[in-house]
Amino acid sequence: MSLAENLVRLRITDGQTIEQVASATRLPATVIAGLESGRISSAHRAVRALARHFGVSVETLEG
């Protein structure tokens, strides 16, 4: 699975909206939406914050 697919799966499995994840990680919702859609592919700081938020490793999140 790709980063985008993993991110969407984790967020939906946790029952969270993009806005909720953005608030919890202090990342802009546009960055999260961009990662989920594949428009943004390399945002290392954001990926690390999202991995921490979902309790997975960066490697797992990136697929």
Rank of each mutant, 00 (worst) to 15 (best):
residue 19 E to I: 01
residue 38 G to F: 08
residue 35 L to G: 09
residue 28 P to G: 03
residue 13 T to F: 08
residue 25 T to R: 08
residue 34 G to K: 13
residue 54 F to L: 00
residue 14 D to Y: 13
residue 16 Q to T: 03
residue 25 T to E: 05
residue 36 E to I: 05
residue 47 V to S: 08
residue 53 H to I: 01
residue 55 G to I: 00
residue 10 L to A: 05
residue 37 S to M: 07
residue 5 E to V: 12
residue 29 A to L: 04
residue 53 H to W: 04
residue 53 H to F: 07
residue 14 D to G: 09
residue 22 A to I: 00
residue 41 S to A: 10
residue 1 M to N: 14
residue 56 V to M: 06
residue 50 L to Q: 02
residue 8 V to C: 03
residue 4 A to C: 03
residue 39 R to F: 01
residue 62 E to H: 12
residue 14 D to H: 15
residue 10 L to V: 00
residue 36 E to C: 11
residue 63 G to L: 02
residue 62 E to V: 07
residue 43 A to F: 10
residue 31 V to G: 05
residue 39 R to N: 10
residue 9 R to F: 02
residue 47 V to W: 07
residue 60 T to G: 02
residue 6 N to C: 01
residue 29 A to K: 15
residue 13 T to M: 02
residue 19 E to H: 12
residue 15 G to L: 01
residue 45 R to G: 06
residue 36 E to M: 09
residue 45 R to T: 05
residue 61 L to Y: 14
residue 49 A to I: 01
residue 50 L to T: 02
residue 7 L to D: 03
residue 48 R to M: 04
residue 32 I to C: 03
residue 56 V to R: 15
residue 56 V to C: 11
residue 52 R to N: 09
residue 34 G to C: 07
residue 61 L to V: 09
residue 48 R to Y: 09
residue 3 L to Y: 12
residue 48 R to F: 10
residue 17 T to H: 07
residue 3 L to C: 09
residue 23 S to G: 08
residue 51 A to F: 11
residue 19 E to F: 10
residue 61 L to F: 12
residue 62 E to Q: 15
residue 57 S to P: 11
residue 32 I to P: 09
residue 43 A to K: 15
residue 14 D to I: 00
residue 1 M to V: 11
residue 47 V to I: 12
residue 54 F to N: 06
